[in-house]
């Protein structure tokens, strides 16, 4: 089981998953925040934050997941009121209309939450809406092994980047 850890995110990847945890380069006083991509297919070198350039490569049996951190200004807002990463999703949580980019046959789900004082969104795409029951169990295996640590970044000196 491959283990990834960077920028305050830890993941033990189930067999078959690839992953990348990164931060955009910040310029000047701006701050960038963590982004994590997980996929059951070969992640291209350049992938948009929410899967641009990757979701078009998905097979029916594939999964793509994003953990995207927002700036501290989002803390305490109603959107991020939910505490903790969703760990147990069900097939009913996935729908084609949730996709940021509607691709035929695919389905997605998106959650906003706060964990350890850090606001995140979790966005997951399934390669096939029809296979969602089988794929969701794999998604839950991934989510069970995800953890967000307390941020060690210094206090923001300017506007957030993400």
């Amino acid at each position: 089981m491959a283990q990834l850890r960077a920028h305050g995110i830890r993941a033990h990847l189930p067999t078959g998953f690839e992953g990348r945890i990164f931060r955009h380069n910040a310029e000047g006083p701006e701050r960038s925040h963590a982004v994590a991509h997980f996929a059951t297919f070969a992640l291209p070198t350049e992938v948009g934050d929410f899967g641009g350039g990757a979701v078009t490569l998905m097979r029916d049996t594939d999964i793509f997941a994003v953990l995207f951190e927002y700036g501290p200004e989002s803390l305490g807002t109603p959107l991020f009121a939910h505490e903790g990463i969703p760990k147990e999703l069900s097939p009913e949580h996935f729908a084609p209309h949730v996709l940021r980019r509607g691709l035929k046959g695919q389905a997605g789900t998106q959650w906003f939450f706060t964990e350890n004082g850090r606001p995140f969104t979790l966005y997951i795409v399934l390669g096939s809406y029809a296979r969602r029951r089988a794929l969701v169990s794999v998604v839950n295996r991934l989510l069970a092994q995800l953890a967000v640590e307390v941020s060690v970044q210094p206090a923001p000196a300017g506007p957030g980047w993400n």
Partner: peptide, 19 residues
């Protein structure tokens, strides 16, 4: 699978047998 870090400090895992 191969898991490690990139030269810029990010984390990266590759699963050649799964792709």
């Amino acid at each position: 699978a191969i898991a490690g870090v990139t030269p810029t400090g990010d984390a990266l895992a590759v699963s050649p047998a799964g792709s």
